[in-house]
Design a protein around this nucleic acid. Structure first.
Length: 274
DNA sequence: AGGGAAACCCGAACGC
DNA sequence: TGCGTTCGGGTTTCCC
């Protein structure tokens, strides 16, 4: 059995697969739901009843969901902004804001800690019921530059809101959308139908590059909640309002697009002309 | 179809 | 110091 520090933050390593080992093969003894609304499905009472006795088979990810395969069901966790998973041998809930505790047979606790209560978990027989409506994974090899271009061309939307639309592309959040648009030198308000093939290809490459860098740097979290992520120290545009653009020196602008804070370089990210 | 707004949350950061 | 206000992350829902 792998040695564990007293309490470990495991959400990021679970996503990468590296941290899965400590929970693989373990059987759930008991679950306690401290905040009922953190369980999206089924009811909190049914959740605790149904998860008991099930054994962890595998750990994966789809879009922003952490996927923990059990005997009968799949446990899905969406951290939203402030959520985290913690692992440790302790009877009392791990984390100051633990919304759900899962205890395995030997006493190891997996805690869903989430100060802002936005995160959700699901326990479902078939995860595809939760995944319905999700667009392709950014790293899906079937998502070729050509295919991406035709998907963009088919829409008549502003670029940034479409990138955040999980039905269009699954997995980008506000930070990565700003960073990808900066890298591709595209203005967030550009109409998707106006991109040519080369711009679409560059955008896809940029999306993959910023996601890769975020994963490599252990996450982008800028919150006080999770301090491990280092990507926050390498943003080119996101939250850089007034700072010089690393490419051309022009101060980064901030606007609101689709209710989301949006950062871009007004000089080298150009709106495509009609 | 696309866009805008509100709701869900709460700790941090800011203004006075 | 101690109030009150604003902010922001992802998603759903409702309305134009």
């Amino acid at each position: 059995m792998p040695e564990l520090p007293e309490v470990e933050t495991v959400a990021r390593s679970l996503v990468s697969g590296q941290g899965a080992a400590p929970i693989l093969g373990r059987r759930v003894a008991l679950a306690k739901v401290a905040w009922a609304r953190s369980v999206a499905s089924p009811s909190a009472a049914a959740f605790a009843r149904r998860i008991a006795g099930q054994q962890v088979q595998d750990v994966g990810r789809r879009a922003k969901y952490i996927q923990i395969g059990l005997d009968q069901d799949t446990l899905l966790v969406h951290l939203r902004m402030s959520g985290d998973l913690m692992l440790g041998y302790q009877e009392t809930p791990l984390g100051a804001h633990s919304r759900l505790q899962i205890y395995f047979e030997d006493g190891l606790q997996l805690s869903f800690n989430d100060p802002r209560k936005f995160g959700r978990v699901w326990l479902v027989p078939d995860p595809t019921e939760v995944y319905a409506g999700l667009g392709p994974e950014p790293f899906d090899p079937a998502l070729t530059p050509k295919r991406f271009h035709s998907l963009l061309a088919a829409r008549q939307r502003q670029l940034k809101p479409l990138l955040l639309d999980q039905a269009f592309l699954a997995g980008l959040g506000n930070i990565y959308a700003d960073e990808a648009l900066w890298a591709a030198q595209l203005h967030p308000l550009t109409l998707t139908s106006r991109l040519d093939a080369a711009q679409a290809a560059l955008l896809l490459r940029s999306i993959r590059a910023v996601l890769k860098e975020g994963i490599r740097r252990n996450g982008a979290s800028i919150d006080w909640v999770y301090r491990g992520g280092d990507f926050q120290n390498h943003f080119k545009a996101y939250q850089q309002t007034g700072q010089p653009c690393p490419r051309c020196g022009t101060p980064i602008s901030r606007i609101v697009v689709g209710q989301r804070s949006t950062h871009f370089c007004p000089r080298c990210q150009i709106v495509q002309a009609a």
